[in-house]
């Protein structure tokens, strides 16, 4: 019966039993190969710092950076900075993401709106977003509003582009199936466009989140008395590189965690994808 497998087989068809009750087999634990290089580098850095090969006023040892974080945590300062920065990113991400989703959906779905809105938005996109900073401060002051708006601007464009291109690239053939079954506009959006757009949407969200973290640094450097970005400036002003490095490390950890959260959510919703990535993992 080997010839029954026909030419269009995309993946090995599962035996019926496995296809019906498909709790995915737990992924086998693999030795984290990606951790080898960072650990080696950290080790070398620590040793070099200890023997005095690195100037401590420029590049303190990793343990010293960790100790700085420990002190910040004990005094409670750390949680305050983390909370403030996370809050700003969350607010900006929510605002920019929501606006990007709505406008991207409009321009993607309705050609008239695309002709009306897209040229303007593409034009605005070409302005380096940090160029808005002075204007935002002038308009909204140096407090929370201008910071959140700046982050929202950064998040907006990737999300907008992701949604719009996602909708535009929905397979016409699938839309036609929806039409054959007489789906109304809203049902067609919900049952064909929405799921078909999700992959591009998640790419947009992840890019947006990345820019959100970038812009929170810019926003907090330009004037803040709380937040991880403030720690950066504080460390520079007071000549404490360990504080700067601690802040950088915390940014890395936070960015990675929020991105992983988004990726997990995406993976759960996009299990159906037939791509190199999904089949390989």
């Amino acid at each position: 019966m080997f010839f029954m497998a026909d030419s269009l087989t995309l993946t090995t068809p599962l035996p019926p039993a496995q296809a019906t009750n498909a709790p995915r087999p737990a992924r086998r634990w693999q030795w984290p190969l990606g951790a080898v290089l960072p650990l080696l580098l950290l080790g070398a850095w620590e040793v070099l710092a200890r023997v005095g090969a690195l100037p401590p006023n420029l590049l303190p040892a990793p343990t010293k950076v960790l100790a700085t974080i420990g002190v910040l945590a004990r005094t409670g300062e750390l949680w305050q900075h983390l909370g403030i920065t996370l809050g700003r990113v969350a607010l900006g991400f929510g605002l920019g993401g929501a606006l990007g989703t709505v406008l991207g959906a409009l321009t993607g779905y309705l050609p008239l709106m695309r002709r009306l809105l897209d040229p303007l938005l593409q034009g605005l996109r070409n302005i380096p977003s940090l160029a808005w900073v002075p204007l935002f401060i002038l308009w909204m002051g140096i407090y929370e509003t201008s910071k959140v708006v700046l982050i929202a601007v950064g998040v907006f464009f990737p999300v907008y582009l992701g949604v719009m291109s996602g909708i535009q690239n929905v397979d016409r053939k699938l839309v036609e199936v929806g039409r054959v079954y007489r789906l109304s506009g809203l049902a067609l959006v919900r049952r064909v466009f929405l799921p078909a757009t999700l992959p591009a949407y998640f790419v947009g969200l992840r890019n947006g989140l990345g820019l959100g973290w970038m812009f929170v640094v810019a926003a907090e450097i330009m004037g803040a008395n709380k937040g991880l970005g403030f720690l950066l400036i504080d460390g520079q002003m007071t000549g404490r590189p360990q504080t700067i490095l601690a802040s950088i490390l915390l940014f890395a950890v936070l960015g990675r965690c929020t991105d992983a959260l988004l990726t997990q959510l995406g993976r759960r919703l996009l299990r159906w994808q037939d791509t190199h990535g999904t089949n390989a993992s």
């Binding site: 995309l10 068809p13 019906t20 159906w272």
Partner: peptide, 16 residues
């Protein structure tokens, strides 16, 4: 019937 819960990517061309 046995493939009711399978996803399209798991099907051969004839099955699809």
């Amino acid at each position: 019937t046995a493939f009711a819960e399978a996803l399209p990517r798991q099907l051969s061309g004839g099955m699809a």
